[in-house]
Amino acid sequence: MTRSTRVTNSIRQLRAERGDVTQAELASRIGVTRQTIIAIEQGRYSPSLEMAFQIAHVLGVPLDQVFQYPDAAQH
């Protein structure tokens, strides 16, 4: 059973839009393993705020375009 985080993200979609950013390249640019990027994309790990900003920076979009917290909109 996978333990999913409530934080969702659009990393895979944003990488696809940019075309040339692989999981391995994103991992290399922020200094983590490819396995960590995969875990984040699959919702099995919530990155620290610092890593979240680094991912957004590499993808060239604001933080809230990369990560979403669905419950926040409901309250």
């Binding site: 692989t22 999981q23 391995a24 390249e25 290399s28 393993t33 490819r34 396995q35 995969i38």
Partner: peptide
């Protein structure tokens, strides 16, 4: 290069998990 590795490449354990 490791950064050119495609997303569908096999995912080995990290050294820590190993």
């Amino acid at each position: 290069s490791p950064t050119s590795m495609p997303d569908d490449a096999p995912v080995p354990m990290t050294s820590e998990e190993r």
